[in-house]
Design a protein around this nucleic acid. Structure first.
Length: 358
DNA sequence: CGACGTGTAAC
DNA sequence: CCTTTTACACGTCG
């Protein structure tokens, strides 16, 4: 039996800004991602004061400004700073872990199965919270459960600065009160379809007929939904191998001019190339990502032999972009690049051997 | 089955 | 009025 902890830093970006700018403490704070077109952009994080005004992550900045009052602070993201602090906190947390998994810049799973009991795990959680608070001046919310799914849902149950423990025998009771959209992995679309089937609570979902779920969701997802509703999750706490890498950005203005768009793609490709060389990663697929003036996203990709050369990204991106602009229509608002089908050096060598012996 | 493009979801 | 990055599942095509 495992004991898994999920740690979630409370409105991380906003908390860090508050921490280094004491004069804004106590105010509504909105951390913004600007696209480079004046005030256009989206909200990355809003602190709890700002959330009370109805300002939420992913909301267009223009919307947030309408909801803001004269005391609301708007700041641009400083990702480099957040990343450096995040990595320091991750190091601290990892020191408490039997195994560790960073889930994002502000979330991590800590396997503490070597604890004799949930009570002991809870003590460690308190230590972690104190440790983070005294060393970095921010709070976090922690959930403890028998697996990652339950731990994650527990950490969300009480925020900010929460600590929630859900033992195996408490899972059923903890879940029964919640609506399906509280399950990690069930978003708006799935919730709507489930509601049409008369399934509203996690309890409803746990009792639902799998065959009926399969009609709407397909075999795989139906099974997954059912498992989640029962609080089952065997996935281990372990760092996941990276499978793809992408960069995308907004153009100065909407355009269908090849060289304007390619300039941006080239810039992203160069940055990404540095990263894969440093990490000794090879790729097999190059894709361009295009978001039109209508905000619809399109991707066009091509798979080749494993490589790590910048030239291979650039050449393929160039071809794909030309093809796209030739046939498709409409102006482009945002453009970017993705490499996927990532392989390690070793995997690349092996695929070479396979070819050799074939 | 692999490749490709889209949709859903979470951050 | 519209950000960024990653993962995964599904349908389709050859």
């Amino acid at each position: 039996m495992r004991i898994v902890m999920h740690v979630d830093f409370d409105s991380f970006y906003a908390s860090l800004e508050e921490q280094r700018k004491p004069e804004i403490k106590g105010k509504a704070i909105v951390i913004c991602m600007y696209s480079g077109r004046g005030e256009s952009g989206a909200v990355a994080t809003a602190n709890y004061k700002a959330r009370e005004l109805g300002i939420k992550s992913a909301m267009p900045i223009a919307f947030a400004k309408r909801r803001a009052n004269s005391d609301t602070i708007f700041l641009p993201v400083d990702l480099e700073y957040y990343r450096s602090i995040s990595s320091q906190i991750m190091d601290v947390m990892e020191s408490y872990a039997d195994s560790f998994q960073q889930a994002s810049i502000d979330e991590a799973y800590i396997d503490v199965s070597s604890c004799e009991s949930f009570t002991e795990a809870e003590k460690i959680a308190k230590q972690i919270k104190d440790d983070i608070k005294s060393n970095f001046g921010i709070t976090c919310s922690i959930g403890i459960g028998p697996n990652k799914l339950v731990a994650k849902m527990a950490s969300r149950a009480k925020k900010p600065d929460g600590l929630t423990v859900v033992k195996q025998e408490d899972v059923k009771n903890f879940f029964s009160s919640l609506s399906v959209d509280k399950i990690h992995g069930i978003g708006g679309k799935t919730t709507t379809v489930l509601a049409e089937m008369g399934i509203k609570t996690i309890e409803d979902l746990a009792k639902a007929d799998v065959a009926k779920l399969e009609l709407s969701f397909g075999k795989n997802k139906a099974k997954l939904l059912k498992e989640k509703a029962l609080g089952t999750d065997e996935s281990p706490v372990a760092e996941q191998a990276i499978k793809q890498m992408s960069r995308i950005g907004t153009l100065q203005e909407d355009t269908s001019d090849f060289s304007e768009i390619y300039k941006k793609v080239e810039q992203f490709a160069t940055e990404m190339h540095k990263k894969i060389i440093k990490r000794k990663i090879y790729f097999r697929t190059v894709s361009i990502i295009i978001i039109g003036a209508n905000i619809e996203m399109v991707t066009r990709g091509k798979t080749i032999q494993a490589t790590n050369k910048l030239e291979d990204i650039l050449d393929n991106a160039k071809i794909l972009l030309k093809e796209y602009l030739n046939q498709d229509s409409g102006k482009v608002r945002r453009a970017g690049i993705r490499i996927s089908n990532l392989v390690t050096e070793e995997q690349k060598e092996n695929s070479g051997l396979y070819k050799f012996f074939k």
